[in-house]
Design a protein around this nucleic acid. Structure first.
Length: 297
DNA sequence: GGTAGACCTGGACGC
DNA sequence: GCGTCCAGGTCTACC
C-alpha cells in the first residue's frame, strides 16, 4: 500500500536524507542516488514492516511492503512526519541567513531538517554510539545491535528493526560487549534500555516537553553516557538549536575556518557561533566550511 | 569549576 | 602475524 504526506515548504527530500549520516545507520537504508529511503519499523502491533519513502511534489510518497491494519496507518504517518520533520518551519532561520554568505545556500536547498529515528530512544542510543569512536565504528555497533537484537522483517530476515527498549533491557552488558562490541558503552545502553522499558525514563516526552532548552539539556546530561556533545546533538534532533555539538570534527572545522589551522577548544567553537542565538546549532551544521571545500575536491 | 586518567575498539604503522 | 600507538567523548576522583 502507499500514501502521500505533505511537507511544509520549502522542502527537499534529498537535503533531509543527506543532512547527516543517520541514513547510513541501520535500520535505515538508502539507494545510491538518495532517491529512496527505507526504514524497517517495529510497530506497536508487534509487526515489522519496511517503509520506503520517495520524493514527490510538495512532500513524500510512503510505500509499505504490506497493508497496514487499524492504527498502524496513523502510527506510520506520525513516524514519517517526525523522521523527515515534514512540519518543521525554518523561515525565521532563513531570514537571518540571507545576511551571511556562508549560509545563503540553506534556503535555496531547503536545508534545516535533520533526519531522525522514529523514537528518541533510538536516537539516544545511536548518539551514544557516535561518541569516542570512528564513524565506521558507529556503523558497526548500530548494525550489530539491529542485526542481533532487532525483530526481523517477516519476508526477508536479513533486515531487522531497531531493538525495542524491553528487548535491549533483557540483554546483559557482557553480551552487548561481546556480540555488539559496544565496549565501555554497554552499561550505558543497558541502563537506558532498562529505564525506558520500566517507564522510569520517558524519552518520547522530550519531543513535546514545553521547557527551556537549557533545562532539557540538563535532563539529557543526567542520563549516564550523555555528555555535552551528545546532549547538543540530541537537542538538534529535538528541533532545538541553542547549543553547538562540539566534537573533534567541529574543532577541526573552526580551526581551519578562523584560526589558521591552530588547535582550538570548545570555547572557540562556541564563540564562533555565539551571535546566532537560538539558531547557533543549525548555523554551525550547515555552514559552508573552508575546510570542507579545500579537502573534498 | 577545572583537570587527569581510565574506559574500549579498530585502524595505522613498524617490525 | 604480532605488538604498539593513537583517536574518539564521557565519567569519576581529585584539587
Amino acid at each position: 500500500m502507499e500514501f502521500t504526506l505533505k511537507a511544509n515548504p520549502p522542502f527537499s527530500f534529498n537535503s533531509v536524507v543527506r543532512s547527516h549520516g543517520w541514513s547510513k545507520l541501520a535500520p535505515f537504508t538508502v539507494d545510491d542516488s538518495s532517491e529512496e529511503l527505507t526504514y524497517i519499523a517495529h510497530l506497536t502491533s508487534d509487526r515489522v514492516v519496511a517503509i520506503s519513502i520517495r520524493d514527490v511534489k510538495g512532500g513524500v510518497k510512503v510505500v509499505l511492503d504490506s497493508p497496514l491494519i487499524g492504527t498502524e496507518r496513523s502510527e506510520t504517518e506520525t513516524a514519517v512526519n517526525w523522521m523527515l520533520g515534514l512540519k518543521q518551519d525554518f523561515s525565521k532561520f532563513y531570514a537571518l541567513t540571507q545576511h551571511e554568505s556562508k549560509l545563503k545556500h540553506v534556503r535555496n536547498n531547503a536545508q534545516g531538517r535533520l533526519l531522525r529515528s522514529p523514537t528518541l530512544f533510538e536516537d539516544v542510543i545511536k548518539t551514544i554510539l557516535t561518541t569516542n569512536t570512528s564513524w565506521s565504528g558507529t556503523i558497526r555497533m548500530v548494525e550489530a545491535l539491529v542485526h542481533n537484537f532487532g525483530k526481523p522483517l517477516p519476508d526477508d530476515n536479513s533486515y531487522h528493526a531497531f531493538p525495542e527498549p524491553k528487548r535491549l533491557a533483557q540483554v546483559d552488558e557482557k553480551t552487548l560487549r561481546s556480540v555488539a562490541r559496544l565496549g565501555y558503552r554497554a552499561p550505558y545502553v543497558s541502563e537506558i534500555a532498562r529505564q525506558v522499558a520500566s517507564g522510569s525514563l520517558d524519552l518520547e516526552l522530550y519531543k513535546v516537553k514545553d521547557i527551556p532548552s537549557e533545562e532539557l539539556r540538563k535532563e539529557l546530561l543526567a542520563i549516564k553516557g550523555i555528555g555535552e556533545y551528545a546532549a547538543a546533538n540530541l537537542l538538534m534532533i529535538l528541533g532545538r538549536y541553542d547549543f553547538v555539538p562540539v566534537d573533534s570534527w567541529a574543532r577541526k572545522l573552526v580551526s581551519y575556518e578562523s584560526h589558521r589551522g591552530e588547535p582550538v577548544g570548545k570555547k572557540e567553537v562556541e564563540a564562533a557561533f555565539e551571535d546566532w542565538g537560538k539558531w547557533k546549532g543549525l548555523a554551525f551544521w550547515f555552514w559552508d566550511w573552508s575546510y570542507n571545500s579545500e579537502n573534498t575536491q
